[in-house]
Amino acid sequence: MTLTSLLRPDRINLDLKAKKKPEALRELVHMIRQGDDADLLLATLTKREELGSTGIGKGIAIPHGRSLLIDKLEMAVGRSTKGVEYDSIDHKAAHLFFLIMAPPQDPGNQYLITLGRVAMVCQELTKKKRLFDPQTPDDLIELVRSLEEKIR
């Protein structure tokens, strides 16, 4: 399963308004669920963040979790030009967010494989300083596609 196959233009927001972590998580979650479901997903993500930030540094955060509300792997992407206070491991603001939600059990453990692929693609993105290149959701999907091909 490629990252590109999990990305949808309507689940990519290149202009997040959030300034802090809880607001950023809320904006991301609302791209995939609404109402009570969104609140439960948010609680799942918050619990994970309490154990340690999913901000892996260099402007990247990968909030993630398994939830009983999710049937198959789902993703949303957000970007903030100004940056979000995210308690990242390098203590710097996070700019690009890949939200990954998975069901409690998934065949072939695609969730963990996807998590790893996102991390690798993000490394390439930061190495090449291309975080702010995409102007549209389709641009971002295309960029991820090209980077993903290189890490195969």
Binding site: T44, K47, R48, E50, L51, G52, S53, T54, I56, I62, G65, R66, S67, L68, I89, P104, N109, Y111, L112, I113, L115, G116, A119
Partner: peptide, 24 residues
């Protein structure tokens, strides 16, 4: 509790640890 058990199951795997997440 169940969500915690899923987190625990995942973080013990090599794939997860390779991403480089850290504790608080």
């Amino acid at each position: 509790l169940e969500e915690f058990d899923h987190i625990l199951r995942d973080i013990e795997t090599a794939d997860y640890q390779a991403v480089g997440f850290q504790a608080v």
